[in-house]
Write a protein that binds this DNA or RNA. Structure first.
Length: 723
DNA sequence: TGCAAATGCTTTTTT
DNA sequence: AGCATTTGCA
């Protein structure tokens, strides 16, 4: 196997196969290449069986990519090798042996919205006020407990004496019991339960320890305690644990990721070999220097400095726009310009923003400018109501204990089973200590229900039963078609004749093409398998390859990707760094996020800032981001009259600081001065559309909009286009 | 039961 | 602003 296209450090990382290995891989230093070569090297040169290798990533996409690259290197299918995410590896372990910790093997996986349903029920039953115990924050608290492998018992013990925590411990207990009764696990359970299973069952643990002679973990800086524990447990026999990560790219601390796992790795694993990959192959010198300059401001980090043999490159471009629209227009113009002058393709560009809300303006402007884009994130396909409904039917068929799903669709589409009827069924179930589903079947014995209610419930129960009977000899597609047919879901939507209903129908049809794809291509074609893969899938996984479009995504989703030209808009205090981060003192993580953003760029980087921006419907005047000022001055070309010293002084905690407001207002008027608004002018308003100016004094205009009435508009706050 | 109106949120979100 | 959820009323 040829390794001569690897640099010295990369080569060492590939051939050092025995014992713990920590690879500190800077951005763009070729870590995926190292990982894949390492796996290929083990198989080809060291005669390691693929069966003995476990490679863990965080995303399905990364796992898929790694698998493909390994296949390309060894020229074939690595049979028996586990290349998977933490979660799917855990599902695999749990599927085999979860009965040993009191679950049934056909468990379902609950997503965030399912969790919320369960949590609300818990709080209701405990009679806790959901203002004092908000369901969402209860879930996030419990989530972090699970990330740290703190079970119900542990937490209840350690919260003694703390009034609030004692109560939360009850919530936790009840929540876990409910999940178990539904034979369901949430995402955090997947990891925690897998660890619990292995800890409680030495036979199973030693089976996996024996099996996995070589373990690799990618993005190690993003592991939480539970994931770390899982990896180290599995590796404790052979001690061939190779972890790859970059503490400077740790951006998921808020989700329980612990940089300590990477920083303390050498202490935890004696005789760890440490290899640093510091040569960057991605970016120009100037881009890299900018990234280094920013991240150097962080106090807690392993000292390192990326270098590159790449060209010096161009200056970074900085632009100060009047508002978010001006900012997006500038980006659009730059894209069009570069396509023209440098033959760039749409897919060469990425716009990376801090919050999803920022995408809207870009979408609007790109649509106007006829720039094709691909938006990542947002509501995932599987999160759509209609899709969740179909999935709920499927989940019930697989696991009738799943009350959340039953509750979800018992009256969807509407079949006249109301809340009161459901309560009566629940009562009956509780009295007889049966499941909700069994109560449905027994519906005739529920005296409190009216005859018509009984009939409706009976119909529903029969539908489910017929589905269960048929599932064995039907493909997933056939089952779904059967559900559509029997529930008349699509027919009912068609009668609505609304745009939403139409898009729901399209989604339901799209869902069928997913099931067809599954039926054709999946190795295991059971409904159970379909449910697992879909539960663990996200919007990021559905890629249309070869698509020529500009990428729009958050900085978080951009990790691991690269683009020739990158735009970082919204470089403003309280956007980036976000006001939450400033308030909670998480500045360093934001800075790392900025580092991630800058290092996505290969040859061109554009940063921008808008003096005025509407956030949550309020107009804000944010000062320029501290991160801009941390980029060495000589690397940036400033396409503006903006004065750096002034901005540094201007930085305040409140975005609505008075002085800034006045200053910004002045600037804004200059921005719009090319337009002449007078009585009778036809103007275009970004939200109201076309209108006619009735009166205009100072900067206030009364404008009549077609079908929207007369609005008073401040022309210095809203960008009006005169036509 | 079903709807419209009122209210409440809102950083990031690999699974 | 935009969205989702809850509330209040017919």
């Amino acid at each position: 196997m040829k390794l001569n296209h690897l640099n010295e450090m990369q080569k060492q990382a590939v051939i050092h196969t025995e014992g713990p290995l920590l690879i500190l891989a800077g951005a763009g230093s070729g870590k995926t290449r190292v990982l894949t070569h390492r796996i290929a090297y083990l198989v080809e040169e060291q005669d390691v069986s693929p069966y003995e290798i476990l490679a863990i990533t965080f995303t399905n996409k990364a796992a898929k990519e790694m698998r493909e690259r390994v296949e390309a290197l060894i020229g074939g299918h690595p049979r028996g090798m586990w290349i998977s995410t933490f979660h799917s590896a855990c599902v695999r372990i749990l599927r085999n042996d979860i009965d040993k910790i009191g679950y049934a093997k056909n468990f379902v996986i609950y997503d965030t919205s399912d969790q919320l349903v369960v949590m609300k029920e818990v709080l209701k039953q405990l009679d806790y006020n959901d203002k004092i115990f908000p369901p969402k924050s209860m879930l996030s608290r419990i989530g972090s407990l699970k990330d740290e492998l703190i079970g119900v018992k542990d937490f209840s013990d350690r919260s003694k004496g703390n009034f609030r925590d004692e109560r939360i411990a009850l919530v936790y207990e009840k929540y876990q019991n409910k999940l178990k009764a539904n034979n369901a696990l949430d995402f955090d359970d997947l990891i925690m339960r897998a660890v619990q299973l292995l800890m409680a069952n030495p036979t199973e643990l030693s089976f996996y320890q024996q099996k996995f002679k070589y373990i690799l973990v990618d993005e190690f800086q993003d592991t939480n305690y539970a994931q770390y524990k899982l990896a180290s447990m599995l590796a404790s026999k052979h001690k061939n644990l190779c972890v790859v990560g970059d503490d400077d790219q740790s951006i998921y601390g808020w989700r329980g990721a612990d940089v300590g796992n990477i920083l303390g790795f050498e202490q935890e694993f004696p005789n760890t070999k440490v290899i640093k990959l510091e040569q960057n192959y991605r970016s120009t010198k100037k881009i890299l220097d900018a990234a280094n300059g920013v991240v150097a401001n962080n106090k807690s980090r392993k000292k390192k400095k990326l270098f590159t043999d790449n060209n010096e490159g161009e200056d970074l471009q900085y632009f100060c726009a009047g508002n978010a629209y001006g900012e997006a227009e500038h980006v659009a113009k730059t894209i069009v310009g570069l396509m023209d002058s440098e033959n760039k393709k749409l897919s060469d560009f990425a716009v990376l923003y801090r919050t999803n809300a920022q995408s809207r303006v870009f979408e609007e402007i790109f649509n106007k400018a006829n720039i094709k884009y691909r938006l990542y994130g947002g509501t995932p396909f599987y999160g759509r109501k209609e899709i969740k409904d179909v999935m709920a039917y499927l989940r019930i068929i697989e696991n009738t204990a799943d009350q959340v799903s039953l509750g979800r669709v018992i009256n969807v589409p509407k079949r006249g089973i109301g809340l009161k009827s459901i309560e009566k069924i629940l009562e009956y179930a509780e009295m007889n200590e049966s499941t909700f589903f069994d109560a449905l079947i027994d519906v005739h014995h529920i005296g409190s229900l009216s005859g018509s209610a009984k009939a409706k419930i009976c119909n529903f129960a029969e539908l489910i039963i017929s589905l269960i009977e048929k599932k064995a000899d039907m493909s997933v597609t056939e089952i779904v078609e059967y559900i559509y047919e029997k529930t008349k879901y699509i027919d009912i939507l068609e009668k609505e004749k609304t745009v939403e209903a139409q898009s729901r129908i399209e989604n339901l049809q799209e869902f069928l093409s997913l099931t067809v794809d599954f039926d054709d291509n999946s190795e295991i074609k059971t409904l159970e398998e379909f449910l697992v893969t879909t539960s663990l899938q996200t919007s990021l996984d559905t890629e249309e390859d070869g698509e020529n479009a500009v990428t729009l995504m958050t900085l978080h989703s951009a990790k691991g990707l690269e683009f020739p030209v990158v735009f970082l808009p919204g470089m403003e205090e309280s956007i980036f760094p976000s006001h939450m981060a400033i308030k909670e003192g998480n500045e360093e993580e934001e800075r790392r996020l900025c580092y991630v953003g800058i290092t996505r760029a290969m040859s061109k980087l554009y940063l921008s800032h808008a003096t005025q921006r509407t956030i949550y419907g309020r107009v804000c005047y944010n000062s320029i981001s501290r991160f801009i000022n941390e980029i060495p001055d000589e690397l940036i070309a400033r396409d503006t009259k903006y004065n750096r010293k002034k901005a540094v002084r201007k930085t305040t905690t409140s975005p609505l600081f008075r002085g800034e407001m006045l200053e910004a207002k002045k600037e804004k008027i200059t921005y719009d001065s090319s337009q002449v608004i007078r009585t009778g002018s036809k103007v275009i308003h970004p939200t109201f559309g076309i209108g006619t100016v009735i009166t205009f004094k100072d900067d206030m205009a009364s404008i009549a909009f077609e079908g929207k009435g007369i609005k008073k508009i401040s022309t210095s706050f809203v960008k009006l286009t005169v036509c």
